[in-house]
């Protein structure tokens, strides 16, 4: 009986240690969570069936095929310094005003890829949700973002937004 107790106590210790290690290793993320971030980041597949997260490889294949419209969710500054060629700049904060209705209508039939800086950036996911609310049916989020694209040595453009 005391054996069982010891095992349970040790198992609980493993649990407590996991919480402590997780909090220490992911301290920056946990800190952002405590400050109120990540409360609207993750979406339910039932609410957003048209959004999928994709890897860099998938994004590169879609880009190479040329059929997909890429959206850069970062601000105009970072976009100007470097972005995925042919990607439109659509800062998440301004996304409601940026695209005229006829462009929205034109793009509605096409698959979209959205990205932001990379790492733990949230704007691509928020933009994806907003575009989904606008009626887009096929939105892929390149989770590695610009950082991963650039690191892989893939083509890049500089300068202002282009059609």
């Amino acid at each position: 009986m005391s054996d069982a107790r010891r095992i349970i106590r040790q198992a609980l210790t493993i649990g407590v240690l996991s919480v402590l290690v997780a909090a220490a290793v992911h301290f920056p993320l946990v800190n952002r969570f405590v400050r109120g971030e990540f409360r609207e980041t993750f979406f339910s597949r039932a609410d957003y069936p048209g959004i999928r997260l994709i890897t860099l490889q998938e994004a590169e294949d879609l880009w190479a095929a040329g059929e997909t419209v890429f959206f850069d969710a970062r601000g105009a500054g970072p976009y100007g310094e470097g972005h995925v060629p042919r990607a439109r700049n659509l800062p998440e904060a301004e996304s409601r005003q940026m695209l005229p209705a006829d462009v929205l209508k034109l793009l509605r039939e096409r698959a979209l890829v959205v990205y932001c800086e990379g790492g733990d950036c949230q704007s691509s996911l928020l933009l994806a949700k907003r575009l989904h609310d606008e009626g887009f049916k096929d939105i892929r989020v390149m989770t590695g973002g610009w950082e991963e694209w650039k690191k892989a040595g893939l083509p890049e453009d500089r300068g202002d937004d282009q059609e």
Partner: peptide, 8 residues
Amino acid sequence: WKRASALV
């Protein structure tokens, strides 16, 4: 802690 980790 073989058994404890196996339990977890």
